[in-house]
Amino acid sequence: MPKSLYLDLRRRPDLKIISELVHPGSRVLDLGCGDGSFLQMLREKRNAEVLGLEIDQQEIAKCIANGVPVIQSDLDTDLDFAEDNSFDLVILSQTLQQMRRPDQLLRQIVRVGRRAAVSFINFGHFHCRFQVFFAGSMPRTTQIPYQWYNTPNIHLGTIRDFQHLCRHLDIRILQETPIGFSFPLLTAAWPNLFAVGCVFVLEKA
């Protein structure tokens, strides 16, 4: 059987944090699941009942090869198939910034899942701020290496923006775990300035 290698969780600390949120035997939906290797891991390590949504035909073929159930979906339009609270955890990892309407998707995921885990890329990071401030151009990072005109990441925001949006949507933030590759103390103290990303655990208020 063709098997993709498990994700290297050291390179994706956000997924490591999310994997620890998955209770054994729980039902997990991953939005934008790629080749399904993260779900494959959750199934084998956490005995989770998994489902992935993915838009790309080639990635879907890989999910099928990995034995991960996957539904071809456009997250901007196709989440209405799922009933309220039909998943224990809905995962959205580094995808929110690609949505046409992040606010509508957030509403959907806290409807469909009892809890949602959102891994968010922070454009309030000092590196991004420096690029705008000193170089006078839109930030490019190793996580998001695109130019402003060809980027699929059409809705970039900061940790503070995300917190405001959740308040606005009546979504409760149960937990937030900032991720920084350096300066751990500064990251903990000023996440919006020093964290490259953040994992939020959400539920409907």
């Binding site: 489902l51 159930p69 996957v70 196709d78 009933e83």
Partner: peptide, 21 residues
């Protein structure tokens, strides 16, 4: 096909779906 998939998911069955271009 999406109607079928939706009905199957309501029954929590193991479902995969692909629309091939």
């Amino acid at each position: 096909s999406r109607k079928i998939v939706r009905a199957l998911l309501r029954n929590r069955l193991n479902v995969s779906f692909c629309e091939i271009q």
